[in-house]
Design a protein around this nucleic acid. Sequence first.
DNA 1: CGGCATCCACATGGATACTG
DNA 2: CAGTATCCATGTGGATGCCG
Lengths: 119, 119
Amino acid sequence: MSQQPERLEVWCAGEEWCALTSTATILGRKWHPVIVHRLLRDGALGFNALKEAVDGVSSKVLSDSLEDLEEHGLVNREVVSEKPFRVQYSLTERGESLDPVISAMQAWGKEHLAEPRDA
Amino acid sequence: MSQQPERLEVWCAGEEWCALTSTATILGRKWHPVIVHRLLRDGALGFNALKEAVDGVSSKVLSDSLEDLEEHGLVNREVVSEKPFRVQYSLTERGESLDPVISAMQAWGKEHLAEPRDA
DNA sequence: CGGCATCCACATGGATACTG
DNA sequence: CAGTATCCATGTGGATGCCG
């Protein structure tokens, strides 16, 4: 059940800054943190449900993003039904471990970015 | 002395995902988190000192990155001497407030990304 | 429903060379 | 020392349309 043992392979292993740049590269794509956040909040979701939950992403970009997240072992894709074709995306353990990072990012954003109305 | 009162203007204000995407866009650029980390760790640094501290970035990219960080009010640029021309880059209060985010990113990276040798 | 195919525009990073 | 000027390859996102 645990797909955690091995660490993610990265091109910069050995460099002191690798942990930071790699994490930035993974979470720095426009929708990645939002996707992870939605899956953390709502649990497993189908493609279109996730698309609506994210709200603002196109099919193509969501598809690309999910593929990238899958390749990084953060998201799990599961076909739950063939007849009415249904898929579910959920976080792996590694994906869930991003919670503190996502939370920190969102907290910072809420604290320092402009809001529509102040009050 | 406080340049914190106003929040950063962003193109996505009002969107629920704005805090996350904007933060991702700011910290997601390859060297941004490393630059902020170095300034957090070492304090104010000159251009070349910072370039060496980051280790791996080109002048052009460092220059671009610093400009971007300045525009976001995270980094402060100060000319400390004209004759022997010297400049110092340091974090603003807003920049320092990124500490928890950078720390979370680095902690996650160290925990989940491959290292040169295992033992 | 859950995508993929295409095409396009622009952002980003890197190499190299040069300057005040 | 502290950058800027070019040039270029690739990455990334977005729009639109189509398919099983």
